[in-house]
Amino acid sequence: MNTDKLSARLAAVSKYVPKDARLADIGSDHAYLPCYLAKNEGLPFAIAGEVAKGPFQSAEKNVLAEGLAGVISVRLGDGLEVIEQGEVDCITIAGMGGALIASILDNGKDKLASVKRLVLQPNISAISIRKWLIENNWELIGEEILEEDGKIYEILISERGDPHRPYKKNPDMELLLGPFLVQKQDQTFKKKWTAEMKNWLRIFEALEGAAHSSETNNKRQEIIAKIKLVEEALKIEDS
Rank of each mutant, 00 (worst) to 15 (best):
V88I: 10
N40P: 15
V63T: 12
L133N: 04
K116Y: 04
G86D: 13
E60Q: 01
L100H: 06
A69F: 08
A113I: 13
Q121M: 09
K61C: 08
I157E: 12
A94E: 07
E60I: 01
L100D: 02
I145F: 02
S73I: 03
D110L: 09
E159G: 00
Y36C: 15
S73Q: 03
S103A: 10
G108M: 04
P122D: 08
C35S: 12
I104P: 13
F56P: 02
D106W: 02
V63C: 13
Y32S: 10
R130H: 07
I145Q: 04
R75A: 02
R130E: 15
S125R: 02
F56N: 01
S125N: 15
E81T: 08
I127L: 00
W132I: 14
I134M: 13
D89K: 04
S158K: 09
I93H: 15
R117S: 14
G161S: 08
G142S: 07
D78C: 07
K39E: 03
K39C: 04
K61Y: 12
C90V: 11
G86F: 13
G49N: 03
Y32G: 00
E143G: 00
I83S: 00
E135G: 02
V119I: 02
V51D: 11
Q85L: 07
A31V: 04
S125I: 15
N62T: 13
G86E: 11
A94S: 04
A59V: 04
R75F: 01
L105D: 07
L140C: 07
G98T: 09
I145T: 02
E60Y: 00
